[in-house]
Structure formats: C-alpha cells, structure tokens
Amino acid sequence: MSQQTLDLYEVFIRARRGLDHKHVGSLHAEDPEQALEYARDVYTRRSEGVSIWVVRSAAISASQEDDSASFFDPSDDKPYRHATYYKLPQAVDSM
C-alpha cells in the first residue's frame, strides 16, 4: 500500500497535567488508534508528554493566513481592550 492512501493526522501533546494540548506535528496512519501509537512512538520518545490527542487533518478548518489582514482587522483599532490603555495614579496603578 502506498503511503498516500493513509490519512494524515495532526498530533497534540499535553506536556504536563494542567497544561493545554499543544500541536507538535503530524503523521500518516490507518486509523485513530494506530495514529495514537505512532504518535507515542515518534513524538514522546523522551517523555515529552502525559497525554496525546490525534485529529484527522481533514477535520481541521483553518483560517487563511493570506487573508489575515482583513480577517483579524476588527481588533486592530481597539487598544482600549488592553489594561495598559488606562492611565491611573501611581498609588493604585498595580490594580
């Protein structure tokens, strides 16, 4: 079987309990169980994590980076969403 026929999976690893799963890479596998085992063998050889998620790459919908200027435009002109925008007297500035 040629590898192109296998589904591509994205791999996410939780480094320590309490942290988010973080994307680390991808791999080809026959099914989710196999993807998990491959991910363990490839991405956690040095105890990189305590939990793995695999997601079929085809199931991910992504925004287009080429369009990011217009896509994220609505938050560009709203500096008041940041705490530093508000100037307070020294005595209470640590609020």
């Binding site: 969403r81 940041h82 705490a83 925008y85 508000y86 100037k87 307070l88 007297p89 209470v92 609020m95």
Partner: peptide, 15 residues
C-alpha cells in the same frame, strides 16, 4: 488576562 482592563476602565470612570 482579558479581565485586567475591566477594573481599570471602571476606576477611570470613577476618577
């Protein structure tokens, strides 16, 4: 993290 501005804008209004 997101909430940090809420309190400051309120205090600014009071000030």
């Amino acid at each position: 993290k997101e909430e940090s501005f809420h309190q400051r804008q309120g205090y600014e209004i009071m000030l």
